[in-house]
């Protein structure tokens, strides 16, 4: 079911799944191209959640999906504010919200009253920025220095022009923002769970066998894997609600 939510910058669409009562999982897709690559998988995972009686929502954050707001108007903080707007929407209905984030989506759930955060293969902002720089560097065939996205701007030009990386037009402010953002995991008393692929040596509460769909240029899906992640979320929420 398609719903809408409001935030300080306007109104955006959200895909809702599952029952109209009980806790709600608010899922944030990764930023930029990886969002397209993981959307079908995320929807499958949320459908599995619904079958287990857990409600969820997949919002289009401004600058993502069907949103009419151009990406180059966005900063991480504004996307976090919009995410907070989704949480507020359900909070007003008296429902408890749990954050879920895939890859850099784990950077977006900092605001809003969440009772816990579940992150799958979280990527910190500095690592994403390195990757974006590398994509740009391969595109133009030369290596780029730190803060390269400010370099082509003439002195005194305000705002600094956006840069295009693999088809996404991104504001330099957002890229600067990224360099210091890490997944939100330091909220005392709030549950936090991290899952990673078995091939990822990073720290995690659980390692799972699977393929990194966010790397695939042809968006794929993996129903069995979506089922495993959905089960993990269901079990985790059950312990949080106890």
């Amino acid at each position: 079911m398609i719903g809408r939510y409001d935030w300080a910058g306007g109104t955006e669409a959200m895909l809702r799944f599952g029952p109209a009562t009980g806790p709600v999982v608010v899922l944030a897709l990764p930023l930029f191209e990886e969002a397209n690559r993981t959307r079908a998988f995320a929807v499958t995972m949320l459908r599995r959640l619904a079958e287990r009686g857990v409600a969820s929502v997949l919002p289009d954050l401004p600058g993502q999906g069907e949103s009419l707001v151009p990406l180059h108007d966005m900063t991480i903080l504004r996307m976090q504010e919009a995410y907070g707007g989704v949480v507020d929407h359900f909070d007003r209905e008296g429902r408890t919200c749990y954050g879920a984030g895939i890859r850099s989506g784990a950077l977006l759930d900092a605001l809003g009253l969440l009772f816990g955060r579940w992150h799958f293969a979280p990527q910190d902002g500095a690592s994403l920025l390195r990757e974006l720089t590398r994509i740009k560097s391969v595109e133009i065939g030369k290596s780029l220095g730190e803060c390269w996205y400010f370099e082509h701007a003439e002195k005194g030009v305000d705002p600094v022009p956006s840069v295009e990386i693999a088809g996404n037009v991104i504001a330099p402010d957002l890229l600067t923002d990224l360099s210091v953002k890490t997944p939100f995991d330091r909220s005392p008393g709030t549950a936090h769970r991290t899952l990673r692929l078995a091939s990822d040596p990073g720290e995690a509460d659980r390692k799972v066998e699977g393929t990194p769909l966010w790397r695939r240029s042809e968006p794929g899906n993996d129903h069995a894997f979506a089922q495993i992640l959905a089960e993990d979320i269901v079990d985790w929420i059950a312990t949080c609600e106890r």
Partner: peptide, 28 residues
């Protein structure tokens, strides 16, 4: 044909993560 600029970046980043190494851009 699958190895475009995004895929090159993906390959290098995955190799870094999985092997725990750092590849400088000027080495690519």
């Amino acid at each position: 044909p699958e190895l475009d600029s995004m895929a090159v970046a993906g390959v290098l980043t995955e190799i870094e993560d999985r092997l725990g190494i750092l590849i400088e851009d000027d080495e690519v």
